[in-house]
C-alpha cells in the first residue's frame, strides 16, 4: 500500500515536471533570445556568445524605467478599484434580495459579450472631449470595474454558507458591515484571484494604452517595448528581453498571492 502510494507520488512529480517544461518553453525561448546578439537569433549557440547588451540597451536607449513606473501606477489604481467595487457588486448580486437582481446579473453577463473593440473608438472620443487622453485618469477610471470579476465574486460568494451571515445578523451587524467585517476577511482566495488576474491583464494591456496615449513619456511598458522594432527592422532579441522584463513582476506577484489558495478559510468561517 505504502509503496504504491510512493510510486504514484513519483509519477505525479514526473508528470507535473513534464508539463512545467512544456509550459515554460516560450518563456525559456524569450529568456534565451534576450541574451543573444541579433545575428545569432534562432540559432543554438554556446554560452560565450551571450550578452546582456539587450537589457542595457533597453534601459539606456529606451525609457524603460519610466514605462515601468507608468505601468505600475496604472495597474495599481485599476486593481484597487476592481478589488473593492467588483466584490461589492458581486456580493450584492449573490446575497441580497432586491428588485431587479436577475436583470442586473444578466446585464453583467451581457456586458462581457460586447467586443471591446466596438466601444474603444467612441470611448476614446469621450476621453478626448474631457481631455483625459494622455492622462492616467483616462487609462484607469473607465476600467475600475469589470464584469468578469463581478461575475466571479458573485459565484464565489454564493458558495459561502448562509449561517455565517445569519450569525452576524444576530450579533447586530448591518448587512454592509457584515460584508466588510466578516465576509471580506474570509474571502482571501477570491480577492487573491481578482488581484492576480486583473493585475495580469492590466499590466499586459496593449489596445487601450496604445490608443489613449500618444506621449512617449507616458507610454506603459508593453506599448513602449513595441517601439524597439523599426519600420523595416525586427529586433527579436530586444523584443524578447522586453518580454522577460514584462513577465517577471507578474510572476513575483503571483508567487506572493497564490499563498491565499489554501484550504480551510471558508471552513473556519463555518465553525464561527
Amino acid at each position: 500500500m505504502k509503496k504504491r502510494l510512493r510510486v504514484s507520488r513519483v509519477l505525479l512529480y514526473v508528470v507535473l515536471t513534464a508539463i512545467s517544461i512544456m509550459f515554460l518553453l516560450p518563456f525559456f525561448y524569450a529568456l534565451y533570445t534576450s541574451f543573444l546578439p541579433l545575428q545569432y537569433v534562432d540559432r543554438i549557440v554556446s554560452f560565450d556568445k551571450f550578452t546582456i547588451n539587450n537589457y542595457i540597451t533597453l534601459f539606456t536607449k529606451f525609457n524603460v524605467g519610466r514605462w515601468y513606473w507608468n505601468t505600475f501606477i496604472m495597474t495599481l489604481i485599476t486593481v484597487a478599484g476592481n478589488v473593492i467595487l467588483d466584490t461589492m457588486a458581486g456580493y450584492a448580486l449573490a446575497k441580497f434580495r432586491f428588485r431587479g437582481r436577475n436583470i442586473i446579473f444578466i446585464i453583467v453577463l451581457a456586458s462581457m459579450m460586447v467586443p471591446f473593440q466596438l466601444i474603444i473608438t467612441p470611448m476614446y472620443i469621450m476621453i478626448a472631449k474631457i481631455n483625459w487622453h494622455n492622462t492616467i485618469a483616462g487609462l484607469t477610471i473607465p476600467f475600475l470595474y469589470s464584469p468578469i470579476y463581478i461575475f466571479m465574486s458573485r459565484q464565489f460568494f454564493i458558495t459561502i454558507p448562509r449561517e455565517i451571515e445569519e450569525a452576524a445578523t444576530i450579533d447586530g451587524l448591518s448587512k454592509a458591515k457584515t460584508f466588510f467585517k466578516i465576509i471580506l476577511p474570509i474571502s482571501g482566495s477570491v480577492i487573491a484571484s481578482i488581484i492576480i488576474l486583473n493585475f495580469t491583464t492590466t499590466w499586459n494591456a496593449y489596445l487601450v494604452p496604445s490608443t489613449f496615449v500618444t506621449d512617449r513619456d507616458k507610454f506603459v511598458l508593453v506599448v513602449g517595448l513595441r517601439t524597439v522594432n523599426d519600420m523595416h527592422f525586427a529586433r527579436p532579441n530586444l523584443v524578447m528581453a522586453g518580454v522577460v522584463l514584462t513577465t517577471l513582476p507578474v510572476l513575483l506577484l503571483f508567487l506572493r498571492f497564490q499563498k491565499h489558495f489554501v484550504q480551510g478559510i471558508a471552513t473556519t468561517g463555518l465553525k464561527v
Binding site: 474603444i120 476614446y124 478626448a128 472631449k129 487622453h133 490608443t211 517601439t227
Partner: peptide, 22 residues
C-alpha cells in the same frame, strides 16, 4: 513631435485620433 509606437498603431489609431480631434 508625436510618436506612435508601431506602424500598426499608426494606421489603425490615427483615424480615431482624427475623429476625436486629438
Amino acid at each position: 513631435l508625436v510618436f506612435y509606437p508601431t506602424d500598426k498603431d499608426y494606421w489603425d489609431n490615427l483615424p480615431a485620433h482624427i475623429a476625436a480631434g486629438t
